[in-house]
């Protein structure tokens, strides 16, 4: 009984860590521009597919990962530079539609340049499960969770301690004031796309050995990450982490105890409940600032 519960929990945390990385990407771009970037899932796909492709080309795993991440970051920044910035005077809804177009475009390019097959990436360090309390954990799970924790800590450091991180937060809180103190808010937007692409691709690479990757893998991962971001209160860093873990664990428990048929529905039921009863998310504030 308990072993079963533990098993579902580990699975949930592992998947949830990936959702959390995607959700943080959503939140970072949202903060910089109020745009919801629906190409976020494609960053996840590009990370995983890129790595698989580079591995097949004969590169060692660490090199393939670094190149795939760097490539995805460049794609993210190009997306901002070529598709978002030229339309910066358009409404937010228009910009969101542009990101949907970009996501379709990126999937198209991926299937032409790479292929339409499912790919399994080898696990980073072996396939022998570690047994804890009767539950089996794959070593790759630990990579996903450890990688997620590292990313969260690095982001925390960036936003709390570094000048550029604070400038990004300041832009989120008050874009006008940010420009008046000399922050280049265009640069902040570019950086936010780069950062979101970085997080997405890392998530995609970490999870790829456990769940196969293909050119459309980003659709579901992107949507789940979006649910996680909304659940935690869009734009809130810790909320994104909590949201990701909640969605991941709920999904895994639902699949385990109810039926795996409902696995994908659970995230969307959660998001509906949250939007009905707590529209600003579990950790969203209701604005207590003085004006």
């Amino acid at each position: 009984m308990f072993a079963e519960f533990l098993q579902f929990l580990f699975t949930g945390i592992t998947v949830g860590a990936t959702y959390a990385l995607v959700a943080m990407g959503f939140s970072i771009i949202y903060n910089a521009s109020h745009v919801i970037n629906f190409a976020q899932g494609e960053f996840v796909m590009l990370g995983g597919m890129g790595t698989v492709y580079l591995l097949a080309a004969g590169l060692p795993l660490p090199v393939a990962i670094i190149i795939a991440v760097a490539m995805t970051v460049v794609v993210g920044m190009l997306l901002e530079k070529l598709a978002i910035e030229p339309a910066r005077n358009a409404s937010v809804v228009t910009l969101i539609i542009i990101t949907i177009g970009a996501s379709i475009f990126l999937r198209g390019v991926a299937q032409v340049v790479m292929d339409k097959e499912f790919h399994a990436m080898p696990a980073f360090t072996g396939e022998d499960p570690i047994v804890i309390g009767g539950a089996a954990i794959l070593p790759q799970s630990l990579w996903v969770i450890g990688g997620g924790v590292m990313m969260v800590l690095a982001l925390w450091f960036f936003f709390e301690r570094m000048k550029m991180g604070k400038a990004m937060l300041a832009t989120a809180y008050n874009p006008l004031a940010a420009r008046l103190v000399g922050i280049n808010t265009k640069m902040v937007l570019l950086l936010s796309f780069g950062l979101a692409a970085f997080l997405g691709s890392v998530g995609g690479i970490l999870i790829a050995p456990m769940s196969a990757t293909y050119y459309e893998v980003g659709i579901m991962l992107g949507l789940k990450g979006f649910c996680a971001a909304i659940l935690g209160g869009l734009g809130r860093g810790w909320g994104a982490v909590a949201g990701g873990l909640i969605v991941g664990i709920a999904e895994s428990m639902g699949a385990g105890y109810i039926s795996s048929e409902y696995k994908d529905a659970i995230a969307f039921i959660l998001i509906l409940l949250v939007l009905f009863f707590m529209p600003s998310g579990l950790f969203g504030t209701r604005g207590t600032e003085r004006v």
Binding site: K166, A170, N174, A178, E289, R290
Partner: peptide, 14 residues
């Protein structure tokens, strides 16, 4: 036009 949730010191340093 404060950066409301940020500290007074952060506002000044920015």
């Amino acid at each position: 036009q404060m950066f409301g949730p940020m500290s007074v010191e952060d506002n000044l340093v920015l």
